[in-house]
Amino acid sequence: MNLIENISCAAARTQLDDYIAGNILPGDRRSVGTHLRSCSACREIFEAHWQMDRLLMLLPRTFPRETLANEILVRVDRADLRQRWIALAGSVVWGVLILWVLYSTWLGLQEGPLAEVINMVMNEPALLWRFPLEVIGAILENLPIFEFASIVILVSVGVWLLRRYLPGNMGPAPRSMREAT
């Protein structure tokens, strides 16, 4: 192993690109520089790297048509509009479903055992704040589980849809760089 200025050829060579790019600490830069001045083999490699670096800087940068940015904005607007229509249609459908379930639940309440609880509360509204937990418990106890679950699911999906498609918050998005890649 050829050691010049406390730096081996192998170590110097691994730092050549950083040396060329200037991404190197001053101390390391000095060591690599000194090594290159003293080691013809490494200097030859350095020159090859340096030339390829200069050559790559010649890589032409291509520019888009002038109208491309406008076309992008038009496409974004269209997609935005489409998403909003989808969101609106989705919200209407879910809204109707929720109303339907609520209505059928209400019909069930009119005739079912929960009607008593409702009547009690209607006659004595103070019960609502005096014994809220008891009232909620009574409602939950009497509400058919299927309808209760349906309401919870429908409301959750509706909220999720609105959050997803509300203006400025379209579609799924990467939360982080890792997710984006």
Binding site: G168, P172, A173
Partner: peptide, 21 residues
Amino acid sequence: EAENLTQETFLRVYRALSRFR
């Protein structure tokens, strides 16, 4: 292809901007 990819990139950016940190 480059134009399509550029358009698609900004479309995704538009969708994701609200979650950009």
